[in-house]
Structure formats: C-alpha cells, structure tokens
C-alpha cells in the first residue's frame, strides 16, 4: 500500500465519479494530532487482534515444539520432531492434497459460479425476485443443518440414490472416499454459500454505470466484449471480495467432514483443519496438532501474499 491508492479509489468510474478529483494533494498533511487520532481509533481493534492473535500464534508454535501428554500434564521439548513426523505421516499424503483441492476448487469455481448466477439474476425477467430469494435460502441455514440434511440425501439408499435409480443408475458410494466424496463436499459447501456471494456480485453489477454500457453498445461492442471490458473491471473489487470469502470459507469444509464422514474411510476425506481438530481434541495429541496448525497458518500466510499480489494486478480501482 502506498499513499496513492487512497486517491486511486476515486478513479473515474466509481459511483460518484464526476465530483471526485483524483488527487491526494488536498489532503491535510499528517500531523501529530492526526496520528494520535488515527491510532486511538485503531487501538482497540488492532491491539485486541494483535494481543489475542499474537498470543495464539506464539503459543501454538511453542506447543508444536513439544510432546504434550494432556492427561499427566507433562510437556517434553522435542524440537522439530513434530514437523518431521508430518513429513513421514502417510495420512498427510492424503490430507494435504485434499485441502489444496478444496481451496482451489471452491475459490475458483465458487467465484465463477457467483458471477455467472449474478449475471443471470441481474436480468429483467418475470419472477426474478423469486429466484433471487431462492438462491439466498441455503445461506440462511446453518452449515451444520445443511450438512445434516445433505448427509441424508447422499447416504447409501438415500434420496440421491433414489433419484439416480429412477434414471436406471446403480447406487453410488457417495461418501466412501476418493474424488467422488470430495466433490460431494464441494457441492454441499458451494450450494450453502453461493447465495451470499451472488448478492455481493448482484450489488456490484447493479452499480455498474448504465451510461458506460450504453456508450460501449453504441460503439458496437458485443455482449461478451461489454462484459469482459466494462463489467468485469467494474465489479473487480466484488470479485476480489468473493474470492477472499471463498478462500477462507474453503477451510470451513471442516464441519462437513466432521458431520458426514469423520474424515473416513481412513483419512480419505480428511482435510487439514479436520486433522488438527481430530489430533488435538479426539486423540489429545496437542503437540502434533499444533505443528499441523502452524503449517495451516503458514499456508494461509502464503495465500494471503498471493492474493495481495493478485489484487494489485487485477482489481481495477487499486491500480490504474
């Protein structure tokens, strides 16, 4: 971030373009009072965040260097043993790829699906309000409820087998591991959250200035060209937002895993966040679970860095 972003926000195509001068020279200089004011506004949130988050991170790292016996309360320093163990743990050869699968699939597909549906719902069709509400319904259901319902739908000889059976298909082992189970999880997760994302996109779409589109149309730009060159740049902040929500949300697959398969069979449907919970709270292996948590944190940190770069490149208002 540098000081120019602030002004860049006011780039011409925003909601109030005509009134805004894209300059920062009018802003009063930073003075002591300004700093005091700024810091005092920031203090409660930032100090709280840093205190709790910092404590948690230092602590989890410290724990990850120990072997902890929760029952006898004995802690033994083991250095990086827990991390070495991760590399030798055969389960992790499944858990890490599964985690990456969800992060990539959910963030990319989830964002694309949200944009596509929002475009569809942004049309002036009779009864469109009904569909807009319908799409929002799963977002109102808690994740747990959604997972429980879906568990019934995909259980052996359940509703889904009934439906596929009506088309002459054999029952499928929906929850018996492999890619199929991961896909089921992805569908459950995506259907749950797509509504919120669509609304965000819809909001962005509706604030795309009509005159810009009209001008492009007069210039002879086709529907796709208009979408690609006008709409997408205009809604790029919303796309970033949705993408971010989907990335963080992709770790929430935890609940689906816990409620639908418990990570099974074996660890075939497990993900990193579930493995952390399982090791820490079901097997009481705090040290090992902490090392997994540190890995999760580092992975997320790397993701944050990547998205930060993407944001500079793709988000319209942030970099002109």
């Amino acid at each position: 971030m540098n000081r120019t972003d602030h002004a860049a926000v006011a780039a011409p195509a925003r909601v109030r373009p005509p009134r805004v001068r894209p300059s920062s020279k009018n802003r009063p200089p930073r003075d002591a009072g300004r700093n005091v004011f700024g810091y005092s506004l920031l203090a409660p949130g930032v100090l709280g965040f840093v205190a709790v988050g910092g404590t948690a991170l230092v602590w989890v790292f410290w724990l990850s260097l120990h072997s902890v016996n929760a029952l006898s309360q004995k802690k033994t320093f083991v250095g990086l043993d827990n991390y070495v163990r991760i590399f030798h743990d055969p389960d992790m050869k499944t858990v890490f790829p599964n985690t990456a699968f969800f992060v990539v699939l959910l963030s990319v597909l989830g964002t694309v699906a949200a944009v596509a549906l929002a475009v569809l719902l942004n049309q002036k069709l009779a009864g469109i309000n009904f569909f807009r509400s319908a799409i929002f319904v799963p977002a109102l259901v808690t994740m747990v409820a959604w997972a429980l319902v879906w568990h019934f739908i995909v259980q052996p000889k359940g509703l889904l087998d009934g439906i596929t059976g009506a088309f002459g298909l054999d029952p499928m082992p929906w929850l018996r591991g492999g890619t199929l189970t991961l896909v089921v999880f992805a569908v459950v997760q995506m259907t749950k959250n797509v509504g919120v994302n669509v609304i965000i996109m819809l909001a962005a779409l509706q604030s795309v200035p009509e005159d810009l589109l009209e001008a492009a149309r007069l210039d002879g730009a086709g529907a796709w060209a208009r979408f690609r060159h006008i709409v997408v740049p205009q809604i790029s902040p919303a796309i970033l937002m949705v993408f971010m929500l989907m990335v963080t949300g992709s770790f929430k697959v935890f609940e689906i895993v816990l409620l639908m398969t418990g990570g099974g069979p074996g660890v075939q449907s497990s993900v990193l966040s579930f493995a952390i919970y399982h090791e820490a709270f079901e097997l009481n292996d705090i040290g090992y679970a902490s090392s997994l948590a540190v890995i999760l944190f580092l992975a997320v940190l790397a993701l944050t860095g990547i998205i930060w770069q993407l944001r500079k490149r793709f988000v319209y208002y942030e970099s002109d």
């Binding site: 099974g264 069979p265 074996g266 660890v267 075939q268 399982h278 079901e282 097997l283």
Partner: peptide, 11 residues
Amino acid sequence: ADALNRSLDTN
C-alpha cells in the same frame, strides 16, 4: 482404536 477403526474402514 482410531487407527484400528480407520484402517478397517480403508482396507
């Protein structure tokens, strides 16, 4: 027990 259950489940 966890290892046994998971291993039976997988294999």
